[in-house]
Amino acid sequence: MTLILASSSVYRRELLQRLRLPFQSRSPDVDERPLPGESPRDLAWRLAREKADRVLADHPGALVIGSDQVAACEGQAIGKPGTHEAARAQLQRFSGREVRFHTAVCVTDGQSHLQDEITTECEFLPLSAAQIEHYLRTEQPYDTAGSAKAEALGIALMARMRSDDPTALIGLPLIAVCRMLRAFGLDPLGSSEPTPSA
């Protein structure tokens, strides 16, 4: 069985490498815009499954991991900023507020889908314009949901964080992934491993 990560994210790839399992990465072509009335949590949940299913369609017989993260401030979905100006606006909005990061993951072999979502609650410090600018110039987190690159200097933006999985905020909740892989007979601690493809 070939293990595939349905993502082009370098952050998710680095996280999955921690499990020391051979895997491939494939970029899913999925429209990430929310549906009318869709909550941030439901959006993350749907996109994780769509990404896994899209890659599995091109690789039948594989075991595919799909994941998505959506930030939410006051119930509104916040995506990747893409630009310096958009990132600045996001962090100005987050200053002194709680932001929830919904990180969903789906693992499927085409016969079964296992899925979970981990919510990370982040309380941002009151941030000055100078602090925001320093952070953005240093990290350039324009490809990160909510501009919060917590695995690096972004941790300094936080007053507190609460989560059941410390890797969820980075983009792939590894505790949930390990549980799901074991359910498919693949234990990262060594009882089995997928066959690497050529």
Rank of each mutant, 00 (worst) to 15 (best):
L125C: 07
R97H: 11
L47M: 04
R12S: 11
H134K: 14
G66K: 02
D29P: 00
G61M: 06
R54Y: 10
A150D: 08
E133D: 15
A77S: 13
A72I: 11
Y142A: 00
P81W: 05
S9V: 02
G190M: 06
P196Q: 13
R46T: 09
S25V: 04
R26E: 14
K80H: 00
T167S: 09
A148P: 05
E123I: 15
M180I: 04
H113L: 12
S197W: 12
V10I: 12
V64P: 01
D165M: 13
D68H: 01
L63V: 08
D53I: 14
S7Q: 00
L169P: 06
Q90N: 14
L125M: 04
L15Q: 06
S128I: 11
E14A: 01
E139Y: 10
R13W: 09
E121Q: 14
A145H: 04
V30I: 03
R137F: 07
L3M: 13
L157R: 07
S27T: 03
L35T: 11
D187I: 11
V10Y: 07
Y11N: 11
R162H: 13
S197A: 09
S147G: 11
L35M: 12
A44L: 02
A52E: 10
G79V: 09
R182E: 13
Q140T: 10
L114T: 08
M180C: 03
L114I: 11
I132S: 00
T195K: 10
R33E: 08
S9F: 02
R88G: 12
V70F: 00
G66A: 04
R137N: 15
S67A: 09
A57V: 15
F23A: 04
A183H: 07
G154E: 01
E50V: 07
P34T: 04
M158F: 15
S128L: 09
P188C: 12
D116T: 05
A48V: 02
H84Q: 10
T138I: 08
I4H: 01
Q131S: 02
K80P: 01
P141H: 06
E38M: 02
I132A: 10
R162K: 10
A159R: 14
V70L: 00
I118R: 09
R12E: 06
A104K: 00
S147E: 07
C122V: 13
A150P: 05
Q140M: 07
L172C: 03
L127A: 06
Y11A: 09
R18N: 15
I155H: 12
L15R: 11
A72D: 14
Y11D: 00
R46F: 06
D165K: 08
F23E: 07
E38W: 14
L47N: 08
P188N: 12
E85Y: 07
Y135E: 07
G154V: 02
G185A: 11
A89V: 09
L43Q: 12
M180F: 03
Y142T: 00
A150K: 07
R49Y: 13
H102V: 02
E50T: 05
A198M: 15
E32C: 03
P166L: 09
T2E: 15
P40Y: 08
D109K: 10
G82W: 00
V177D: 11
Q24Y: 06
L47V: 03
A156I: 10
G154N: 04
G82L: 00
R88K: 06
A77M: 08
